[in-house]
Design a protein around this nucleic acid. Structure first.
Length: 270
DNA sequence: GTCCAGGCTCTTT
DNA sequence: AAAGAGCATGGA
């Protein structure tokens, strides 16, 4: 599978903080998603996907959000603030991928008060321990993210040994509970958020991430430590006003704007 | 050694 | 309602 798209850069997506299962290899990245493995490569504006396990092409068009026009979203956001303008120019190849809600819930529970490297390590360890084998590439084996039933017998201490720290009990509770991620897809933003907030280990920020990356609610603007820094330092917003400011300022594409800002702040070197 | 990381829960005012 | 302590773990 091959395509061209000016708003698509594999390195920017891989480092945008929304994916934890894009593994760098010499040629590009191994992506584990959709119960399969692919090798994604990019030369200039041409992107290539090589399927490394059984999969379907159309599901990757959906996952990579190829039907949305990011130029249009950028146009909507342009001119609001010079810092956002710079961020959109710097990371114009970033997209919001359509990831699995169930996987996002577990992943972002792990993410709380944690760093990206350790989150990646924990998600990988859980997958290697309990997920289905997908492929071997350059001598490294890759495993699917385990299903709820595959994690059903994992106790709290075992989660701890996989590197999730004190979030072990939250993962355990979710797996033992009866939350149905697929039943939330059609709910309104408010209903979805209040359901997510009932899960242990899910607060305002983690719920926003799950909504943005797992349910494609692109109006959601997760506020983490990096966003606080940006809004205070670069947008001159008072700390107490951050939530109010975000609610109205970034419009219906707040989540997209947030991704550009996050990437810009972390990777531009300032 | 202290601070921080895509924060949250629980307890105390 | 709001503020504070505590939390696993590894890197800077």
């Amino acid at each position: 599978m091959k395509f061209k798209n000016v708003h698509f850069n594999i390195h920017e997506i891989a480092n945008s903080g929304q994916v934890f299962r894009w593994y760098p290899v010499d040629e590009g990245y191994i992506i584990i998603a959709n119960h399969s493995a692919v090798l994604i490569k990019q030369k200039l504006d041409e992107i290539t996907l090589e399927f490394l396990s059984e999969t379907k092409e159309n599901i990757w068009i959906e996952y990579l959000d190829l039907d949305h026009n990011y130029g249009e979203m950028i146009t909507t956001l342009r001119g609001k603030h010079p810092y956002l303008d710079d961020a959109m120019t710097f990371g114009k190849g970033i997209r919001i991928l359509k990831q699995d809600p169930y996987e996002m819930i577990l992943t972002y529970i792990i993410s709380a008060n944690n760093n990206i490297k350790r989150i990646t390590a924990a998600v990988t360890a859980i997958s290697e321990a309990y997920g289905d084998f997908l492929c071997i590439y350059n001598g490294i084996k890759y495993y699917d993210f385990p299903s709820k039933s595959q994690l059903a017998s994992v106790d709290i201490d075992t989660f701890r040994t996989l590197g999730v720290g004190y979030r072990d009990k939250y993962l355990f509770e979710f797996i033992q509970g009866d939350f149905k991620p697929d039943n939330q897809i059609k709910l309104s933003d408010n209903e979805l958020k209040s359901n997510l907030l009932r899960l242990k280990g899910v607060g305002e920020k983690v719920a926003n991430c799950i909504m943005l990356f797992g349910y494609y609610r692109v109006n959601q603007f997760p506020i983490d430590t990096w966003m606080k820094k940006i809004l205070i330092q670069d947008f001159d917003v008072a700390e107490k006003e951050i939530h109010n400011f975000v609610k109205t300022y970034f419009t219906e594409y707040g989540g997209v704007a947030q991704q550009y800002l996050f990437y810009y702040k972390r990777l531009r070197n300032n």
